Simulated assay, not measured.
Amino acid sequence: MLGAEGGALLREGEAQVRKNLTELAQAYQLDVPLDTPVEQLSVGVEQRVEILKALYRKARILILDEPTGVLTPQEASDLFRILRTLKADGVTIVLITHKLHEIMAITDRVSVIRQGKMVAHRETAKTNMPELAELMVGRKVRQEVDRTVQVAGKPLLQVRNLCVDDAAGVRRVKQISFEVAAGEIVGIAGVSGNGQSQLLQALAGIIPPTSGEIQLGDERISA
């Protein structure tokens, strides 16, 4: 923690800072490796580092803006566990999110903002997701979508054993195979930073694949 060392000789101050950080991390179950460079940490651990820094500075109000946007479900669950511990210790938490299940799971009160105006305040225990969704968009929201069964046509895009490296030579796409047929929508799910960008860039011809095959219609693109 730069600026917190104290004294002309930093060793004693650094030891005290480490002791304080370790005690805070243990008290709030913040599993943070103090000697690992931040650039080598996962996004979830990076968030814990930021929370730990704020607590070290004796912050009693935390503002979190879409904190689970790039977290895995397990990392999100760990974050909520930490937030509940902080709440029990009297820390005030402002959580900004559009994910209704998170609002219902973690908050005590919820305020809804729409088009720059605060349109509602509710106690979380006295509201529900359909009401919050309606307040957020200004109209009733259908919770279910009618889906008709579609018969897919012949494959238009075929990907076989595709590998793609990024600009630094790190392999981001590893032996991926799939196909997309005519009249079909295929979703690609994954937490940000897991190769989605490189996959789409390779499919679009922006970057060359390292190995594998991409076939678009009758045209085959090989690495």
Score class of each variant (00 low, 15 high):
Leu203Ile: 07
Asp89Gly: 08
Ala4Leu: 08
Asp146Ala: 13
Thr210Lys: 14
Thr210Gln: 14
Asp165Val: 05
Leu55Ala: 05
Arg11Tyr: 00
Asp31Phe: 02
Glu50Phe: 06
Arg114Trp: 07
Lys58Cys: 02
Val173Asp: 11
Glu179Ala: 06
Ile214Met: 03
Arg171Leu: 01
Val164Asn: 00
Val91Asp: 05
Ala120Met: 03
Asp166Met: 04
Ala54Ile: 01
Arg160Ala: 06
Leu156His: 04
Leu199Ile: 12
Glu184Met: 02
Asp166Thr: 05
Glu131Arg: 04
Gln143Ser: 08
Gln201Gly: 03
Glu39Asp: 12
Arg220Leu: 10
Leu200Arg: 01
Ser77Val: 01
Thr36Leu: 07
Thr36Val: 08
Met118Ala: 07
Leu135Gln: 01
Gly190Ala: 10
Thr85Val: 11
Leu86Ile: 10
Arg114Gly: 06
Val191Tyr: 02
Arg160Asp: 10
Val141Leu: 11
Leu10Ile: 10
Arg142Thr: 13
Ile207Asp: 03
Ser192Ala: 12
Leu71Arg: 06
Lys99Asp: 09
Ile61Lys: 09
Glu131Gly: 03
Lys140Trp: 02
Ala125Ile: 10
Val110Phe: 06
Glu179Gly: 03
Arg171Gln: 06
Pro130Gln: 03
Val32Arg: 06
Ile113Arg: 00
Glu184Cys: 01
Leu62Cys: 02
Val112Phe: 02
Ile63Trp: 10
Gln143Asp: 07
